[in-house]
Design a protein around this nucleic acid. Sequence first.
DNA 1: TGGCTAATTGGCAATTTAGCCAAATAGATA
DNA 2: TATCTATTTGGCTAAATTGCCAATTAGCCA
Lengths: 106, 106
Amino acid sequence: MDDSTRQKYDSRARIIKAMGHGTRLFLVDELSRGERCVCELQELVGADMSTVSKHLAVLREAGIVKDEKRGNQVFYSLRCPCVLNFFACVESVMQTSATQAVELAR
Amino acid sequence: MDDSTRQKYDSRARIIKAMGHGTRLFLVDELSRGERCVCELQELVGADMSTVSKHLAVLREAGIVKDEKRGNQVFYSLRCPCVLNFFACVESVMQTSATQAVELAR
DNA sequence: TGGCTAATTGGCAATTTAGCCAAATAGATA
DNA sequence: TATCTATTTGGCTAAATTGCCAATTAGCCA
């Protein structure tokens, strides 16, 4: 694999990787229902504010969410709702695995 | 976030995370064109055979690919072709980022 | 059996990531 | 201005990931 090909796949993987964490996946799911400020998300996640902020930064740097400061709050929202398609596919992968497990058990 | 919710998102994230690596994304893309044996993939990737084998194991454990031994070769193929939908979404995220960058520059 | 090829596994060092606390920044408001 | 709230950043440690080499496993064939 040459350098430019590697770079192409690495940059795409970076975006997917940003979703590859339980907390960040939860954040994306929550944001699919509308914009939320960091303090709301922190409440829902139940981790340190700084931890949530850093997860949001990862999603922002990947281009998945955008932030907007209003007053002294920062509101996050999905910039590319197509990421929600990931959920359906993931369910289907899990379904396939579960089905296969049952078949193997027979 | 309670334990079972966390578990739900973690298990889903694990599948996405498996795709979140340049080499593994390349492998998935290549397998979308049909089954390949490890040695073919190793040739294409250009890394150590053991490295490629481990990446394939990550994809297999996530339920994204399946393996089939024939003779002394192991053939891998996509178990859930829906993962290819990821590519279109990733392109769209990159497109949005690029467009925004151009707008900001103006 | 012995040797060959294909693939996986074990083990290691280097790098990256995650999550917490403390400190800094920024807007609102008294 | 002083203070309060919301958020980000810096710094640290623990844990996970990556990729290579070496060793092992497994099938094929002479």
